[in-house]
Design a protein around this nucleic acid. Structure first.
Lengths: 159, 159
DNA sequence: GTGATTGCAAATTGTTTGCACGCTG
DNA sequence: CAGCGTGCAAACAATTTGCAATCAC
């Protein structure tokens, strides 16, 4: 944890940015909730607990900064809010998401399932791939059995 | 074209909705620009050409209705606007998108590359898949050569 | 007429910006 | 003191909602 905070501090100063207390608090919240895919509002509420004077705009600015520096990633599941997650440490390690239509949870698939497919797409469509987003929408293991008609949920909830 | 309008009309009346002139105009615009992934605003502007009195709210309501009835699909590429596309006619025919970081164009991959992978995910993660979204972000064939550093573009443009 | 549908304006939501102040080198 | 960084409030953009008027059976 301290190690990662420090690492980020260095990434910031390498570009002449400082790890101010607000930024540090934000980073720590993100690290502490790494598996949660928080929205800006989520982050704001959590950061306020440790730094009550912080403004929402600062949180947005910090998230934008971290995103520009490719320290975090913005995610969109179509429910109207942007969520954030840490980038995989090793540059090219992609992963995917499982978005539950019932409870809104987001789980991760930590393996990259698309390696061969990317190659196929690059050559077949003459498209230079920089990244991809793969999300499966459905019912998570915790909601299994609770939902009668997943397709219906789907049409209601999804964008 | 007429055939498809009629088909949609029937889908609507099957659920006790009417294909009003405004709805029909909206549907036609969507059909005429099927490969374009229009935003609500785009649709609004185009619909206004044939039905100048229409309101933006009506367009939104129509798009929402069509989406609820699973006639069209909402899409999010992370650039802040929701775009719409027709659903594949045959229920389970998935396709994928190529989003160009340089020009913002969206092309389609009409084959479903994920069949086997879905099966693997369902069993391995105990997740019941209803749908998936797969988008490749990168440089389209038209922008090839115009861009020096795709990764940089990526960090700037993407959500 | 009764209920669905519309247009318009106002409200909401998520996010961004302008600006004066504060902190740090 | 120069400039980055902040908090606050106002601005914005996309979308949604309330409501009175209108339309279709």
């Amino acid at each position: 944890m301290e190690k990662r905070v420090n690492q980020i501090k260095q990434q910031l100063s390498a570009q002449n940015y400082k790890l101010t207390p607000q930024r540090e608090a934000t980073v720590r919240v993100l690290l502490e909730n790494e598996e949660d895919h928080l929205s800006a509002e989520d982050v704001y509420l959590l950061v306020k607990e440790k730094a009550p004077e912080i403004g929402l705009a600062t949180v947005y600015r910090t998230l934008e900064l971290l995103s520009d520096l490719q320290i975090i990633h913005k995610l969109n599941f179509g429910d109207g809010v942007t969520r954030y997650e840490f980038r995989a440490e090793g540059a090219e390690h992609h992963h995917h998401h499982l978005y539950c239509l019932n409870c809104g949870s987001v789980d991760e698939i930590m393996e990259d399932l698309l390696g061969p497919i990317e190659k196929q797409v690059e050559s077949e469509y003459n498209f230079q791939i920089v990244d991809h987003r793969l999300t499966f929408h459905g019912i998570c293991k915790r909601c299994r059995g609770k939902v009668e008609d997943p397709k219906k949920l789907y049409s209601i909830k999804l964008s």
